[in-house]
Amino acid sequence: MEETATTERLVKQKLAVFDRLQTEFEECFRYIQDVHGQQRFSTFSVSDAVHYLHALWICECKDRLLSIYKNFRRYEGRHCLELLQGWQEGEIANVVDFLYRKLDMLPVADITRQLHQALYHDNDKDLARRLEHGRLILLNRGMNLMHVLDAIFALKEDQIVKEAQFACMQYGHHPSQIAEQIAMMDTPLYSFIPHRVLAQRNMMLMNKMGANVMSKPADQPGQRSWRVLEPTEPLSPFAEHVIEGYLELTSPLSNNIKGHRFIDRPEHSETLDM
């Protein structure tokens, strides 16, 4: 009982902290989606790169507060804090390596081959339209990477560090604050505590965020491939597979293949036999 009460108190604390974080999380989540290709930025400064690392950390805080199992590393928030700390001390190469790993274009050649197959062999215009949209997202992502690398490489190292320090101050990542933020992530408040209320809060939140992200014209019903068309009602059983030529045989006549004459004999009662 005492352990249950402790868990309930911790869950309430997690929800209270997330209530204060939710608005910033929603902004950061949308920003990450934009950087990952939903938007093509015309410029991407050092400050924007700091914003991106900050947003990844905020999203990991959300995952930890709402106890999202096994997904702590998808945003690499702790690593982002370490990168911001090192950046302010002059370690630039690690930041470049991280940005390149996160934003490097996925192989668009494969999508181009699939697009050609859909257009000229399968005659699947809906799938082709989705592939074109996906390829554009990847291209936006690659362009954003080139913009941020251009912004970093255009400056002298001391200028890069100064801009990073100024941006980190704006987003609350002074070196002394970063040390506290890293230590905070090791507290029970940010530990994994599976609980129905936390899971429900996360599902409601991400349903809302997912709807916002998928509100682009290309993602609307009618513009998608056949894989996400509305189902036909009523739905058939999941494991049903009708064999060609199958006949349902349930009556005695149908099951009497050899045509034997038989009758259903009455069962003998033990009482009558006695």
Rank of each mutant, 00 (worst) to 15 (best):
M204F: 07
S269G: 15
E163N: 07
T112Y: 09
V213P: 00
Q39E: 09
L21A: 13
R201P: 00
F238I: 12
G222H: 03
S176N: 09
N71E: 15
N71R: 14
M214Q: 08
A49R: 02
L84M: 15
E248G: 01
D104Q: 10
Q38L: 14
L84Q: 07
L106P: 02
E91K: 07
P194G: 11
N123M: 05
S67L: 07
F72W: 04
D264E: 10
N256D: 14
D219N: 10
P217R: 03
K70H: 10
L235H: 05
Q22Y: 03
F192A: 06
Q177V: 04
E3H: 02
E26P: 04
N207F: 03
G245T: 05
R130W: 04
D48C: 07
L229T: 13
C61M: 13
E248M: 08
Q33T: 03
D273C: 09
F166W: 05
P188F: 13
M1Y: 04
R201K: 15
R265C: 08
F29Y: 15
S215C: 05
T271S: 08
T23P: 01
L66S: 01
P266C: 02
H241T: 12
K258T: 11
Q38Y: 12
S254I: 01
W226Q: 13
A167F: 08
Q13F: 02
C168F: 02
R9K: 14
K14Y: 05
N123I: 08
L99T: 00
F41V: 07
V11Y: 06
S42F: 01
M105A: 15
L198G: 05
R201N: 11
E233S: 05
I152N: 03
E233K: 06
A128L: 07
F25E: 13
A49D: 01
Q38F: 14
N212Q: 10
